[in-house]
Design a protein around this nucleic acid. Structure first.
Length: 353
DNA sequence: AACAACAACAACCGCACGCTG
DNA sequence: TCAGCGTGCGGTTGTTGTTGT
Protein backbone atom coordinates (compact mmCIF):
# COMPACT_ATOMS: atom_id res chain seq x y z
CA UNK A 1 0.00 0.00 0.00
CA UNK A 2 1.53 3.25 -1.05
CA UNK A 3 1.89 6.03 1.37
CA UNK A 4 1.54 9.54 0.12
CA UNK A 5 3.67 12.17 1.74
CA UNK A 6 2.04 13.49 4.87
CA UNK A 7 2.20 16.97 3.44
CA UNK A 8 3.62 19.01 0.68
CA UNK A 9 7.26 19.24 1.63
CA UNK A 10 7.88 22.34 -0.45
CA UNK A 11 8.06 25.38 1.76
CA UNK A 12 7.79 23.35 4.93
CA UNK A 13 10.03 24.42 7.74
CA UNK A 14 12.26 21.85 9.36
CA UNK A 15 14.55 21.77 12.31
CA UNK A 16 14.13 23.03 15.84
CA UNK A 17 10.88 24.62 16.82
CA UNK A 18 10.79 28.23 17.84
CA UNK A 19 8.84 29.48 20.85
CA UNK A 20 6.48 31.25 18.49
CA UNK A 21 5.71 28.04 16.67
CA UNK A 22 5.18 26.24 19.94
CA UNK A 23 2.80 28.96 21.00
CA UNK A 24 0.82 28.72 17.80
CA UNK A 25 0.53 24.98 18.05
CA UNK A 26 -0.41 25.08 21.69
CA UNK A 27 -2.97 27.76 21.18
CA UNK A 28 -4.60 25.90 18.34
CA UNK A 29 -4.72 22.61 20.21
CA UNK A 30 -6.05 24.21 23.33
CA UNK A 31 -8.82 25.75 21.33
CA UNK A 32 -9.65 22.98 18.91
CA UNK A 33 -8.07 19.82 20.18
CA UNK A 34 -5.69 17.69 18.19
CA UNK A 35 -5.99 14.99 15.61
CA UNK A 36 -6.12 15.31 11.80
CA UNK A 37 -2.54 16.43 11.92
CA UNK A 38 -2.21 16.87 8.21
CA UNK A 39 -4.78 19.61 8.15
CA UNK A 40 -3.70 21.16 11.41
CA UNK A 41 -0.61 23.18 10.35
CA UNK A 42 -2.45 25.22 7.76
CA UNK A 43 -5.28 25.99 10.14
CA UNK A 44 -2.87 26.82 12.92
CA UNK A 45 -0.79 29.04 10.65
CA UNK A 46 2.31 26.88 10.84
CA UNK A 47 4.75 26.20 8.04
CA UNK A 48 5.27 22.72 9.34
CA UNK A 49 4.49 19.22 8.30
CA UNK A 50 1.58 17.71 10.19
CA UNK A 51 3.76 14.91 11.29
CA UNK A 52 6.23 17.35 12.73
CA UNK A 53 3.42 19.07 14.64
CA UNK A 54 2.26 15.77 16.03
CA UNK A 55 5.74 14.85 17.16
CA UNK A 56 6.27 18.23 18.73
CA UNK A 57 3.03 17.92 20.63
CA UNK A 58 3.50 14.35 21.75
CA UNK A 59 7.13 14.64 22.75
CA UNK A 60 7.38 18.14 24.06
CA UNK A 61 4.29 20.31 24.37
CA UNK A 62 1.82 17.89 25.87
CA UNK A 63 0.99 19.06 29.38
CA UNK A 64 1.11 15.64 30.98
CA UNK A 65 4.73 14.84 30.35
CA UNK A 66 7.56 15.04 32.77
CA UNK A 67 10.91 16.32 31.64
CA UNK A 68 14.23 16.23 33.31
CA UNK A 69 16.46 13.69 34.85
CA UNK A 70 15.36 10.10 35.10
CA UNK A 71 15.16 8.73 38.61
CA UNK A 72 16.97 5.60 39.62
CA UNK A 73 13.68 3.79 39.74
CA UNK A 74 12.84 4.90 36.25
CA UNK A 75 16.22 3.76 35.03
CA UNK A 76 15.73 0.37 36.59
CA UNK A 77 12.27 0.08 35.15
CA UNK A 78 13.52 0.90 31.69
CA UNK A 79 16.25 -1.68 31.90
CA UNK A 80 13.92 -4.35 33.14
CA UNK A 81 11.30 -3.64 30.55
CA UNK A 82 13.87 -3.46 27.81
CA UNK A 83 15.16 -6.85 28.82
CA UNK A 84 11.68 -8.22 28.41
CA UNK A 85 10.41 -6.26 25.48
CA UNK A 86 13.41 -5.13 23.52
CA UNK A 87 13.06 -1.85 21.66
CA UNK A 88 9.32 -1.60 22.20
CA UNK A 89 9.58 1.94 23.40
CA UNK A 90 5.92 2.71 23.22
CA UNK A 91 5.12 -0.27 25.42
CA UNK A 92 7.85 0.67 27.83
CA UNK A 93 6.54 4.22 27.91
CA UNK A 94 3.14 3.07 29.10
CA UNK A 95 4.83 1.84 32.25
CA UNK A 96 6.68 5.09 32.87
CA UNK A 97 4.05 7.70 33.58
CA UNK A 98 4.65 11.07 31.96
CA UNK A 99 7.60 9.88 29.93
CA UNK A 100 7.41 9.64 26.16
CA UNK A 101 8.66 6.76 24.10
CA UNK A 102 11.04 9.08 22.29
CA UNK A 103 12.50 10.35 25.51
CA UNK A 104 12.95 6.85 26.85
CA UNK A 105 14.50 5.71 23.62
CA UNK A 106 16.95 8.58 23.63
CA UNK A 107 17.81 8.03 27.25
CA UNK A 108 18.43 4.40 26.59
CA UNK A 109 20.67 5.10 23.63
CA UNK A 110 22.67 7.84 25.26
CA UNK A 111 22.87 6.69 28.86
CA UNK A 112 21.69 3.26 29.80
CA UNK A 113 23.11 1.32 26.89
CA UNK A 114 26.53 2.74 27.53
CA UNK A 115 26.30 2.16 31.21
CA UNK A 116 25.35 -1.46 30.79
CA UNK A 117 28.23 -1.88 28.38
CA UNK A 118 30.63 -0.46 30.91
CA UNK A 119 29.25 -2.86 33.48
CA UNK A 120 29.99 -5.72 31.16
CA UNK A 121 26.36 -6.38 30.36
CA UNK A 122 25.22 -6.81 26.81
CA UNK A 123 22.50 -4.18 26.32
CA UNK A 124 20.82 -6.30 23.69
CA UNK A 125 20.58 -9.61 25.49
CA UNK A 126 20.90 -8.14 28.99
CA UNK A 127 23.20 -10.95 29.82
CA UNK A 128 26.59 -10.43 31.37
CA UNK A 129 29.23 -10.72 28.72
CA UNK A 130 31.17 -13.08 30.97
CA UNK A 131 27.98 -14.81 32.05
CA UNK A 132 29.09 -14.26 35.63
CA UNK A 133 25.58 -13.28 36.57
CA UNK A 134 23.93 -15.88 34.47
CA UNK A 135 22.51 -19.14 35.54
CA UNK A 136 24.26 -20.07 38.70
CA UNK A 137 23.43 -23.68 38.28
CA UNK A 138 24.16 -23.86 34.61
CA UNK A 139 21.11 -26.04 34.38
CA UNK A 140 19.60 -25.75 30.91
CA UNK A 141 16.17 -26.43 32.33
CA UNK A 142 16.50 -23.45 34.64
CA UNK A 143 17.59 -21.31 31.75
CA UNK A 144 14.58 -22.41 29.78
CA UNK A 145 12.31 -21.54 32.66
CA UNK A 146 13.86 -18.13 33.01
CA UNK A 147 13.36 -17.52 29.35
CA UNK A 148 9.79 -18.61 29.58
CA UNK A 149 9.05 -16.39 32.52
CA UNK A 150 10.47 -13.50 30.55
CA UNK A 151 8.31 -14.36 27.58
CA UNK A 152 5.23 -14.36 29.70
CA UNK A 153 6.02 -11.12 31.35
CA UNK A 154 6.77 -9.59 27.99
CA UNK A 155 3.46 -10.67 26.54
CA UNK A 156 1.60 -9.41 29.54
CA UNK A 157 3.20 -6.00 29.35
CA UNK A 158 2.43 -5.66 25.68
CA UNK A 159 -1.17 -6.63 26.26
CA UNK A 160 -1.43 -4.14 29.04
CA UNK A 161 0.00 -1.39 26.90
CA UNK A 162 -2.51 -2.19 24.22
CA UNK A 163 -5.32 -1.96 26.70
CA UNK A 164 -4.07 1.38 27.87
CA UNK A 165 -4.02 2.69 24.32
CA UNK A 166 -7.48 1.40 23.58
CA UNK A 167 -8.86 2.78 26.78
CA UNK A 168 -7.38 6.16 25.99
CA UNK A 169 -9.32 6.29 22.77
CA UNK A 170 -12.49 5.38 24.56
CA UNK A 171 -11.98 7.91 27.30
CA UNK A 172 -11.30 10.78 24.89
CA UNK A 173 -14.14 10.71 22.39
CA UNK A 174 -14.23 13.26 19.60
CA UNK A 175 -16.19 16.35 20.41
CA UNK A 176 -15.37 19.50 18.60
CA UNK A 177 -12.71 18.60 16.15
CA UNK A 178 -14.91 18.34 13.12
CA UNK A 179 -16.11 21.81 13.82
CA UNK A 180 -12.60 23.06 14.27
CA UNK A 181 -11.15 21.49 11.18
CA UNK A 182 -14.12 21.62 8.91
CA UNK A 183 -16.46 18.83 8.00
CA UNK A 184 -15.20 18.06 4.53
CA UNK A 185 -13.02 15.20 5.63
CA UNK A 186 -14.35 11.72 5.49
CA UNK A 187 -12.00 10.43 8.09
CA UNK A 188 -13.47 8.82 11.11
CA UNK A 189 -10.36 8.48 13.13
CA UNK A 190 -10.79 9.37 16.75
CA UNK A 191 -8.84 12.43 17.80
CA UNK A 192 -7.73 12.89 21.32
CA UNK A 193 -8.90 16.24 22.50
CA UNK A 194 -7.12 18.49 24.83
CA UNK A 195 -10.20 19.47 26.75
CA UNK A 196 -10.26 19.56 30.48
CA UNK A 197 -10.85 15.86 30.71
CA UNK A 198 -7.96 15.07 28.47
CA UNK A 199 -5.72 17.36 30.43
CA UNK A 200 -6.42 15.49 33.60
CA UNK A 201 -4.20 12.64 34.64
CA UNK A 202 -5.14 9.60 32.63
CA UNK A 203 -7.60 7.27 34.23
CA UNK A 204 -7.06 4.51 31.77
CA UNK A 205 -4.70 2.74 34.05
CA UNK A 206 -7.34 1.97 36.56
CA UNK A 207 -9.78 0.87 33.89
CA UNK A 208 -7.20 -1.49 32.69
CA UNK A 209 -6.56 -2.71 36.17
CA UNK A 210 -10.19 -3.26 36.85
CA UNK A 211 -10.55 -5.73 34.10
CA UNK A 212 -7.31 -7.35 34.98
CA UNK A 213 -8.53 -7.75 38.48
CA UNK A 214 -11.73 -9.20 37.18
CA UNK A 215 -9.77 -11.54 35.06
CA UNK A 216 -7.65 -12.57 37.94
CA UNK A 217 -10.75 -13.19 39.96
CA UNK A 218 -12.14 -15.44 37.29
CA UNK A 219 -9.12 -17.53 36.80
CA UNK A 220 -7.53 -17.64 40.22
CA UNK A 221 -6.77 -21.19 40.95
CA UNK A 222 -6.98 -22.28 37.37
CA UNK A 223 -3.43 -21.48 36.50
CA UNK A 224 -1.28 -23.55 38.69
CA UNK A 225 1.20 -24.75 36.19
CA UNK A 226 3.35 -27.72 36.33
CA UNK A 227 6.71 -26.46 35.20
CA UNK A 228 6.88 -29.32 32.76
CA UNK A 229 4.39 -27.28 30.81
CA UNK A 230 6.81 -24.40 30.65
CA UNK A 231 9.39 -26.02 28.52
CA UNK A 232 8.29 -24.46 25.29
CA UNK A 233 5.95 -21.70 24.23
CA UNK A 234 3.95 -24.16 22.20
CA UNK A 235 3.20 -26.37 25.11
CA UNK A 236 2.18 -23.39 27.15
CA UNK A 237 -0.13 -22.15 24.49
CA UNK A 238 -1.84 -25.46 24.34
CA UNK A 239 -2.26 -25.45 28.06
CA UNK A 240 -3.61 -21.96 28.04
CA UNK A 241 -6.13 -22.64 25.38
CA UNK A 242 -7.53 -25.48 27.38
CA UNK A 243 -7.66 -23.40 30.48
CA UNK A 244 -9.41 -20.37 29.07
CA UNK A 245 -12.43 -19.49 31.12
CA UNK A 246 -15.79 -19.51 29.47
CA UNK A 247 -16.61 -15.91 30.24
CA UNK A 248 -14.29 -13.01 29.64
CA UNK A 249 -15.00 -9.33 29.80
CA UNK A 250 -12.80 -6.86 28.03
CA UNK A 251 -11.99 -3.41 29.29
CA UNK A 252 -15.04 -1.99 27.60
CA UNK A 253 -17.27 -4.34 29.43
CA UNK A 254 -17.92 -6.52 26.42
CA UNK A 255 -18.26 -10.18 26.96
CA UNK A 256 -16.25 -12.01 24.39
CA UNK A 257 -17.04 -15.54 25.34
CA UNK A 258 -20.22 -16.81 26.70
CA UNK A 259 -20.81 -20.21 28.13
CA UNK A 260 -18.91 -22.75 26.18
CA UNK A 261 -19.17 -21.00 22.85
CA UNK A 262 -16.11 -22.32 21.23
CA UNK A 263 -16.41 -20.12 18.16
CA UNK A 264 -16.31 -16.92 20.14
CA UNK A 265 -13.45 -18.19 22.16
CA UNK A 266 -11.50 -18.89 19.01
CA UNK A 267 -12.21 -15.40 17.73
CA UNK A 268 -10.88 -14.02 20.91
CA UNK A 269 -7.77 -16.04 20.63
CA UNK A 270 -7.21 -15.16 17.03
CA UNK A 271 -7.95 -11.49 17.05
CA UNK A 272 -8.26 -9.14 19.88
CA UNK A 273 -5.24 -10.28 21.76
CA UNK A 274 -2.73 -12.91 21.05
CA UNK A 275 -2.79 -16.16 22.85
CA UNK A 276 0.43 -15.26 24.52
CA UNK A 277 -1.14 -12.11 25.80
CA UNK A 278 -4.12 -13.96 27.08
CA UNK A 279 -1.87 -16.42 28.72
CA UNK A 280 -0.02 -13.63 30.35
CA UNK A 281 -3.00 -12.07 31.99
CA UNK A 282 -3.53 -14.33 34.92
CA UNK A 283 -0.52 -13.19 36.81
CA UNK A 284 -1.57 -9.59 36.92
CA UNK A 285 -0.76 -8.28 40.32
CA UNK A 286 -3.83 -7.59 42.37
CA UNK A 287 -2.05 -4.94 44.32
CA UNK A 288 -1.03 -2.89 41.37
CA UNK A 289 -3.16 0.08 42.21
CA UNK A 290 -1.42 0.29 45.49
CA UNK A 291 1.91 0.57 43.75
CA UNK A 292 1.91 4.31 43.69
CA UNK A 293 4.85 6.46 44.47
CA UNK A 294 4.72 9.80 46.19
CA UNK A 295 3.79 11.54 42.97
CA UNK A 296 0.87 9.27 42.47
CA UNK A 297 2.50 7.48 39.60
CA UNK A 298 1.97 3.88 38.89
CA UNK A 299 4.99 1.77 38.46
CA UNK A 300 5.08 -1.57 36.85
CA UNK A 301 4.81 -4.48 39.11
CA UNK A 302 7.38 -6.57 37.43
CA UNK A 303 10.56 -7.87 38.82
CA UNK A 304 11.24 -5.27 41.40
CA UNK A 305 12.01 -7.15 44.50
CA UNK A 306 12.39 -6.34 48.10
CA UNK A 307 16.08 -7.03 48.02
CA UNK A 308 16.75 -4.20 45.65
CA UNK A 309 17.61 -1.92 48.55
CA UNK A 310 16.48 1.00 46.54
CA UNK A 311 15.49 3.75 48.91
CA UNK A 312 13.43 5.41 46.25
CA UNK A 313 11.35 2.39 45.82
CA UNK A 314 7.85 2.19 47.05
CA UNK A 315 7.68 -0.24 49.92
CA UNK A 316 4.53 -1.75 48.53
CA UNK A 317 6.57 -3.05 45.65
CA UNK A 318 8.27 -5.39 48.01
CA UNK A 319 5.30 -7.66 48.13
CA UNK A 320 4.99 -7.77 44.41
CA UNK A 321 7.68 -10.25 43.75
CA UNK A 322 6.26 -12.60 46.29
CA UNK A 323 2.87 -12.21 44.77
CA UNK A 324 4.33 -12.99 41.40
CA UNK A 325 6.01 -16.02 42.73
CA UNK A 326 3.07 -17.41 44.59
CA UNK A 327 0.41 -16.78 42.05
CA UNK A 328 2.13 -17.07 38.78
CA UNK A 329 5.10 -19.27 38.71
CA UNK A 330 4.02 -21.27 41.65
CA UNK A 331 5.02 -24.79 42.24
CA UNK A 332 8.03 -26.02 44.04
CA UNK A 333 10.02 -26.89 40.98
CA UNK A 334 9.77 -23.41 39.52
CA UNK A 335 10.63 -21.52 42.65
CA UNK A 336 14.31 -22.10 42.19
CA UNK A 337 14.09 -20.59 38.75
CA UNK A 338 12.18 -17.70 40.17
CA UNK A 339 14.83 -17.14 42.81
CA UNK A 340 17.47 -17.23 40.18
CA UNK A 341 15.58 -14.82 38.00
CA UNK A 342 15.18 -12.55 40.96
CA UNK A 343 18.82 -12.75 41.91
CA UNK A 344 19.89 -12.11 38.38
CA UNK A 345 18.01 -8.85 38.26
CA UNK A 346 18.91 -7.80 41.70
CA UNK A 347 22.54 -8.20 40.79
CA UNK A 348 22.22 -6.02 37.74
CA UNK A 349 20.12 -3.38 39.42
CA UNK A 350 22.34 -3.23 42.44
CA UNK A 351 25.19 -2.44 40.15
CA UNK A 352 23.27 0.57 38.92
CA UNK A 353 22.47 2.00 42.29
C1' DA B 1 40.53 31.95 22.91
C1' DA B 2 39.87 28.61 19.32
C1' DC B 3 39.06 24.34 17.82
C1' DA B 4 37.90 19.42 17.92
C1' DA B 5 35.67 15.63 19.97
C1' DC B 6 32.11 13.94 22.33
C1' DA B 7 27.53 13.78 24.61
C1' DA B 8 22.77 14.77 24.92
C1' DC B 9 18.66 15.83 23.05
C1' DA B 10 15.24 17.01 19.49
C1' DA B 11 13.44 16.12 15.27
C1' DC B 12 13.00 13.67 10.94
C1' DC B 13 12.17 9.70 8.01
C1' DG B 14 10.27 5.61 6.27
C1' DC B 15 7.47 1.86 7.08
C1' DA B 16 3.46 -0.53 8.87
C1' DC B 17 -1.13 -0.91 10.32
C1' DG B 18 -6.04 0.03 11.03
C1' DC B 19 -9.92 2.32 9.41
C1' DT B 20 -13.10 4.06 6.02
C1' DG B 21 -15.50 5.04 1.78
C1' DT C 1 -11.41 -5.65 -2.50
C1' DC C 2 -8.71 -1.75 -2.65
C1' DA C 3 -6.82 2.88 -2.42
C1' DG C 4 -6.18 6.70 0.51
C1' DC C 5 -5.74 8.70 4.93
C1' DG C 6 -4.32 9.21 9.71
C1' DT C 7 -1.48 7.70 12.99
C1' DG C 8 1.98 4.90 15.65
C1' DC C 9 6.43 3.18 15.87
C1' DG C 10 11.42 2.51 15.75
C1' DG C 11 15.69 3.79 13.65
C1' DT C 12 18.48 7.45 12.25
C1' DT C 13 20.15 12.02 11.62
C1' DG C 14 20.78 16.80 12.83
C1' DT C 15 21.58 20.36 16.16
C1' DT C 16 23.17 22.21 20.30
C1' DG C 17 25.79 22.09 24.48
C1' DT C 18 29.86 20.61 27.03
C1' DT C 19 34.42 19.20 27.79
C1' DG C 20 39.18 18.54 26.65
C1' DT C 21 43.38 20.02 24.26
Amino acid sequence: MGQSPCCDKVGMKKGPWTPEEDQKLLAFIEQHGHGRWRALPAKAGLQRCGKSCRLRWINYLRPDIKRGKFSLHEEQTIIQLHALLGNKWSVIATHLPKRTDNEIKNYWNTHLKKRLNKMGIDPVTHKPKTDALGSATGNPKDAANLSHIAQWESARLEAEARLVREAKLVSNPPQNLQTALGSSSSSSSVPQLINSAAMAPPTTRSQCLDVLKAWQGVVTGLFTFNTDNLQSPASTLNSMENMLPNGLINDHGIEYCSGSNRENKDKLLDNNMGLNEMAAWPHQDLHKEENMNMEGNNYPDIMVWDSCNDHQQDPSMAATGENLKETNYGGDSSSSSFEEYKNYWNNILNLLS
